[in-house]
């Protein structure tokens, strides 16, 4: 696993102790990375999701 560290709440460092929910998720089969998302990226995701259009130009609500 690669090690990356983003300042703030978002850390991919496997050596940094996770809390219980994060450690459970990291232990699931098939999971390569698991990390908390901070507000900055969540705001960007919410904005981007609002622009998504599905097949036949049908709006998508995610």
């Amino acid at each position: 696993m690669n090690v990356h560290h983003i300042p703030g709440t978002m850390s991919l460092d496997p050596n940094m102790p996770a809390d219980l929910p994060l450690s459970i998720v990291r232990g699931l089969s098939g999971v390569h990375y698991a990390f908390y998302l901070d507000k900055e990226i969540m705001d960007a995701i919410m904005t981007e999701e609002g622009t998504i259009v599905g097949s036949a130009n049908i709006p998508v609500d995610n």
């Binding site: 998720v25 089969s29 098939g30 999971v31 390569h32 990375y33 998302l37 969540m42």
Partner: peptide, 16 residues
């Protein structure tokens, strides 16, 4: 997602 905490999982395979 109006919750206190949000985790992103990057996975190769996962349960259905």
């Amino acid at each position: 997602m109006k919750r206190e905490a949000v985790i992103c999982i990057i996975k190769s395979h996962f349960r259905p």
